[in-house]
Design a protein around this nucleic acid. Structure first.
Lengths: 156, 156
DNA sequence: TTTAAATAGGATGTATATATCCTTTTTCGC
DNA sequence: GCGAAAAAGGATATATACATCCTATTTAAA
């Protein structure tokens, strides 16, 4: 039971971190990896993707990094989810029915259809800025049994 | 965006087919595979699992097959989903927050929490019998470019 | 008792998502 | 210009879900 992929969750976490810094502020991937608990090499891949898709701009070299292209309030979550995940199977019947319409769907159709619509609307109306609201002092889950590093720790 | 795994969807489709036949009626895996479009070898694995977990009884040999152990109205969907999928990450925050409670969750927490509760309740209160209601003349999605067989067709 | 049909169970193959590594290119500071 | 820092990009590794294959065992019927 999930809304979006783990990769997409990572993207959101990283973008929220950048949103807290503000549009156009360049931050290194290693800092973001440390702060958010996202595996560094994987994060750089996600950044490449987000850069190609116009969410981020990147700068190489010393004091390089990535920065938001837009104001956090101008980026909706649905834009990010659509860019990372494939939402085409979004409308497939959970029972695997070839046809499952509103008027004659499977027993799970109405409730799942409703839930999806609500979530979809929420993703459309929630911006990166909104996501930063409750995220001032976040602690993220870590992979495996790693230590829970506090953001900005320098003990790499 | 999904409720349960593809394996679980297969299990439900197969169990609905058996529910239409009634409790205790043995049906061969090949017939069920034909009728539901579930890959045969994979279906037998799912049946082994469902048998071990007490949903089905199996009979080997000529005119063998699997049969429901219980009346279709006595089996809830949540029982099946819990048996097939791992629902432990069910409560993990979609933003990856270590703590994400009702009183102080991430912005997506309320809506996702709600949706999950509704779906969970529906799965609890819907039985195999209920699932058969709209499933008399089902056509299921097929893998790859197979023919779209109508359910219960005898043109194996 | 033999044979065919069917599930059980183990092993293996494939696809995709997740994660890492290495080399190249760019950029800054000296 | 040189060296270090950092992202880009390609290749590879790992985990899991999905799917198939082969052999053994069981069963019913001829």
């Amino acid at each position: 039971m999930q809304i979006y992929s783990k990769t997409c969750e990572y993207a959101l976490r990283a973008l929220v971190y950048l949103a807290l810094k503000g549009k156009g502020v360049f931050i290194g991937a290693s800092e973001i990896s440390e702060a958010t608990g996202i595996p560094g090499p994987y994060l750089t891949k996600i950044f490449q993707n987000l850069t190609r898709r116009g969410f981020l701009k990147s700068r190489r070299g010393v004091s390089g990094g990535v920065a938001l292209c837009h104001q956090p309030e101008d980026v909706s979550l649905i834009q990010i989810v659509e860019a990372i995940d494939d939402l085409t199977p979004f409308d497939e019947c959970v029972m695997g029915l070839d046809q499952c319409e509103d008027h004659n769907g499977c027993p799970l159709h109405p409730i799942w259809s409703n839930a999806k619509n609500e979530i979809f609307l929420k993703l459309k109306t929630t911006s990166l800025m909104d996501l930063t609201k409750n995220s001032k002092k976040m602690k993220y889950r870590r992979l495996r049994r790693q230590r829970l590093l506090s953001a900005f720790s320098d003990d790499a």
